[in-house]
C-alpha cells in the first residue's frame, strides 16, 4: 500500500471515529489539537485502524499513537508496501 493511500485512509478513519470533518485534521493533528480525541475515542481509533489495515499494535505502540504523524509512521512500518 502506498503512503498516499495510507495517509488518506488514516484521515478517513480519524474523521469518522472522532466525528470531525477531514479538513479539521491537519498534518500536526494530535490528541492535543483535536478535542474529541480522548482516551476512550483513542481505543476505538486504534481498533478501527487495526481492522482497516489488518494489523495489530502492541501495548506500547497503543500508548504512543498520539498524533497523525506517529500513527502514519506506525502503520507504514506494519503494512507491506
Amino acid at each position: 500500500m502506498d503512503t498516499i493511500t495510507i495517509h488518506n485512509t488514516i484521515i478517513e478513519v480519524m474523521a469518522a471515529i472522532l466525528d470531525v470533518s477531514r479538513d479539521q485534521i491537519g498534518d500536526d493533528a494530535s490528541m492535543d489539537t483535536i478535542k474529541a480525541w480522548d482516551s476512550l475515542k483513542h481505543m476505538k481509533l486504534v481498533m478501527t485502524l487495526e481492522q482497516e489495515f489488518g494489523i495489530e499494535f502492541d501495548d506500547q505502540e497503543v500508548v504512543d499513537l498520539l498524533s497523525l504523524r506517529l500513527i502514519e509512521l506506525a502503520v507504514r512500518a506494519k503494512v507491506p508496501a
Binding site: E12, V13, A16, I17, K44, M47, T48, Q51, E52
Partner: peptide, 12 residues
C-alpha cells in the same frame, strides 16, 4: 457489520 469503520459510516 463487524467493522467499526463500515458501521460508523453506514450509521452516519
Amino acid at each position: 457489520e463487524t467493522r467499526l469503520m463500515a458501521v460508523t459510516t453506514a450509521v452516519k
